[in-house]
């Protein structure tokens, strides 16, 4: 395949992925907007109004970056894990496997779909947040870089989950028992400075904590950790997960016997 043909193949898969989640937007986009709207009402408005400012920001302003990023993480992950696992389960991944489309484009197509769903949901949640506060714009470039890299990272994680999954149970175990605890304990609703020393050190082992703080820095200019350190960590994770995913695709793990 020449470059033009490769681009056409990638565009075909990406368009298919976007149409898939847009066709069922009531299941894929709307729930995140409603859930996060409830977070803003209950935690931001009702409970937050009773709390002191954190790092010079109201509680509502403080939790907005983490809530937007949480929605992006969950939806990027969910999109790829369900789409690729369905393609495996119904065997229509074979449509791509028999074609001359290189494996890296198959991976990029699925990841691209996850990233775009993450961005669409992120925009929807940001729009909901406008009813409660004005989202911070301290450094838009950093905010966009964090959003995109985080969406790529969790799309890749969703892909890996789908590769190893053998049943629909397998695609819900990781989000429920790993992703959700790490996200909620990643400092969305609090600063790690509020924790005892021991738990502060434990929190530093949570990769999602770095992403949420980098996002908070981009929007508000405050962070519990060094932002360049956080960005480097996200980039490293993306590189490792991309290389591992491509290796598995080339080997045919989970899709070729």
């Amino acid at each position: 395949m020449n470059l033009h043909e490769q681009f056409t193949a990638f565009k075909t898969l990406l368009t298919k992925e976007v149409l898939r989640f847009m066709r069922i937007w009531v299941q894929t986009v709307l729930p995140a907007a409603i859930t996060t709207g409830l977070y803003f009402v209950i935690f931001g408005k009702m409970i937050g109004s009773q709390l002191n400012d954190i790092s010079g920001y109201s509680y509502m302003d403080y939790i907005v970056p983490g809530i937007i990023l949480m929605a992006i993480i969950n939806n990027s992950y969910a999109n790829v894990v369900s789409s690729f696992y369905s393609a495996k389960f119904q065997h229509h991944v074979e449509e791509m496997l028999v074609s001359p489309m290189p494996n890296y484009l198959i991976l990029l197509g699925f990841v691209g779909g996850g990233v775009l769903r993450g961005l669409v949901v992120g925009l929807a949640v940001t729009a909901v947040s406008l009813f409660f506060t004005e989202p911070g714009t301290f450094n838009i470039a950093i905010t966009l870089v964090v959003v995109i890299l985080t969406a790529v990272l969790f799309s890749l994680a969703g892909f890996l989950n789908a590769v190893f999954a053998n049943s629909f149970d397998d695609i819900s175990i990781i989000p429920t028992f790993v992703l959700a605890p790490l996200t909620y304990l990643g400092g969305i609703f609090y600063s790690i400075d509020m924790l005892p020393e021991f738990w502060q050190q434990v929190s530093l082992l949570n990769p999602i904590m770095y992403m949420i703080n980098a996002m908070r820095y981009g929007m508000l200019g405050v962070s519990d950790i060094d932002v360049s350190h956080a960005l480097l960590m996200i980039i490293l994770f993306v590189a490792v997960l991309f290389a591992f995913s491509l290796y598995l695709l080339n080997k045919g793990v989970g899709i070729r016997s």
Partner: peptide, 17 residues
Amino acid sequence: EIVANQAGYYGIERKRA
């Protein structure tokens, strides 16, 4: 869409697909 997408995976432009 099933048939046109398959053409796309072989690098055939959407209109021709």
